[in-house]
Amino acid sequence: MSEISNQLESLSYKAQQIANEASQLASSVAETSGGHSDFIIFGITVLVLACFVGYYVVWSVTPALHSPLMGVTNAISSVIIVGALLAAGPVDSNISKYFGLVAVTLAAVNIFGGFVVTNRMLSMFKKKQ
């Protein structure tokens, strides 16, 4: 029984080693290929297409609702919180994490503030009775 567990232990140790080597290899490959240079062109593609979507969607917004539009865009631009959460995520405390936590707070002010104020504006728009 103990033999099997020993074998298992050594096996898992080897698996761990292989995993480490693989990840090192992967990161060195990534570095030699210039990080994520593939993503840049992919990202630009997405950016350009999203600009076209934005163009058509925003022109269809009625001028009467341009203030709420600014409220909503303000709130959703705080989607930057995704980056802030990744920055604040690690357990060990360092400067990077504190920067992340500050960014989380700032983005949260905006998310809540933006959506709440937009909701307040929109709830006032009423049709003729």
Partner: peptide, 19 residues
């Protein structure tokens, strides 16, 4: 772009073109 995250790029483009 720094995060290789499409959500941020799409949202940024929406807000950018809206403004």
């Amino acid at each position: 772009f720094t995060l290789s995250n499409n959500l941020l790029i799409i949202t940024g483009a929406l807000v950018g073109s809206s403004g």
